[in-house]
Amino acid sequence: MIWLLLLGMALITFANRYLFFSAVITYSPGPKFKRFLSYSSYSVLTAIWAPIIFHFDGQREFQLAGFDYFLAAALAGILSFYRVASIVVVLLSTTLFFVIRFYLL
């Protein structure tokens, strides 16, 4: 039975990924829809990382994952805003994160 589950899931995930690459679909996005899509990576990536740092309990309380997360993310944000190279941003902020997490907290 688990084999069936694996096969079904593999088909679903592949279909969602491949759908718009297939030649069967002839639709191509116009300039307006392309502009809409140009915001997709910024939106999706933020929707993935923001809830790692900020938690909402479903009622009224917001919580931080921790000051280590918050401060290191703030550093990453400031450096990136001033266009420091991505790899430097990742290295510096991750270093700050682990220093706070394992030495200061």
């Binding site: 790692i52 290191a72 993310a73 990453a76």
Partner: peptide, 17 residues
């Protein structure tokens, strides 16, 4: 806290713009 690498990378990819 390895998930911080996700935060750092995704911020690095979006905040410049």
């Amino acid at each position: 806290g390895l998930d911080f690498a996700i935060v750092a990378t995704f911020i690095a990819m979006t905040f410049a713009e």
